[in-house]
Amino acid sequence: MNLLTLFLSALLINNVILSKFIGMCPFLGVSNKLSSAVGMGLAVIFVIFGASVLSWALYYYALVPLGLEYMKLICFILLIAAFVQFVQMFIKKTSPSLYKSLGIYLPLITTNCAVLYVALDNITQGYTFVETLVNSIAVPAGFMLVLVIFATIRERLAAADVPDAWKGNPIAFVVAAIMAIAFSAFSGLV
């Protein structure tokens, strides 16, 4: 499969938040300020890339040869949890500035739908190793793109006169609806 098509489709056309609805939880929780959105986005790219590649390797080199495909869900989620702990420890030891900007968001990613979704999707679609690499970068990049755009809109929205019942998350969903219309225009791209 053409890698560029795969990249663009995962990034824009089948955008993980606006088209597949995965990863909505941090989308609402962390998008109040641009700086936290950028930090969360970078942390998510790092974790999804590492965890998905490791999960792919675990599946094809350990589970399939032993005939244990049904253990996929349990093994993937444990691997993701272990990987997040490892990354947090690694960042603590190597770089305080990196810890300040993205290390604090790492514990929030363990039970994130997006990480498990990408790991499972790579297997369900039967991607080769290179396709897995491309998909595992494109999907969280799309996540970060939408998160950053959304954070800039929400910062302005905080100063607007929103009715009481709509303050906070309901008006955020209306913004997401409009963004979904905008992103659906990409469907003719490839």
Binding site: L28, V30, N32, K33, S35, S36, M40, Y99, L108, T111
Partner: peptide
Amino acid sequence: ANKKTPVPEGCENLKPDCTGCGITDC
């Protein structure tokens, strides 16, 4: 091992700046 590794100095009191973070992490 993660619990034993000390947080780099200057970062002890950092909390992720997000109001709805309870949504993300159970």
